[in-house]
Design a protein around this nucleic acid. Sequence first.
DNA 1: TGCATGGTTGCGTCATGATGCAAGTATATG
DNA 2: CATATACTTGCATCATGACGCAACCATGCA
Lengths: 122, 122
Amino acid sequence: MDRALDPALFKSLCDPTRLTLLCCLLKCARPASVGEIAACCAVDLSVVSRHLHALRAAGMLRVQRDGRTVRYEAPAAALAERFRDIAAAIDACCGPADAACNPSDAGCGPSKNCCSPGDTHA
Amino acid sequence: MDRALDPALFKSLCDPTRLTLLCCLLKCARPASVGEIAACCAVDLSVVSRHLHALRAAGMLRVQRDGRTVRYEAPAAALAERFRDIAAAIDACCGPADAACNPSDAGCGPSKNCCSPGDTHA
DNA sequence: TGCATGGTTGCGTCATGATGCAAGTATATG
DNA sequence: CATATACTTGCATCATGACGCAACCATGCA
């Protein structure tokens, strides 16, 4: 679960502008150039460029160059699956009747306190 | 989809410490006091208190008072569903064959460009 | 080769937020 | 009522990051 709940993933989505860009690309459902995408929100093109770069770094977008044009695309199916993985991870660790709880996950389960003092989870 | 992809949700999860706290509570699968939860990570108790407050404000936690003790709990099933809703929203807008695309969602669908200039999506 | 187009990168500014300490509040307990 | 416990809040500090502007590549075209 600690793997599914990746801070980097949420970090890439916590900015409203970035989320707007991703949303725009999801709706477009096709590769779009940076200039096109920039029309979605009222910020400088350079800002859009950086945001798209960040989203790609987080695995939220695919990129392809075509001459001097750079096209970004949102892999909708993969993204949806990613969120479903998170949901599954939550269910697996804390699911009904503790059945799906993975024993290798130390301290996991309703009957145990995973937060013993000193366990910094770091 | 713009509703499912809520910046506030991701904002509440983008901080590593906050994510650790949520993760801890999910594993515990029971209400835990602030002091207990604080043992999960090496930050000041006041910081933990604030983070828990923020998570609750984002709807990620439930809270209950018992005398001077405050117990937080992670509603695992609800959280999992929330992520599945996001996945479903992505699929619905950009699903296979454009079938699930909601026509009321202006500009939605592969055949149209939702990012026409001036459309700030704001 | 010269110039326009499409993006990216450097840099300074500004706002937000994470953190710790200290003080404050509220509830038990003697 | 005094004191300890469990948290919360005010405040100062510091780091991160979003933004715009300007300068800079890199590609295409005349």
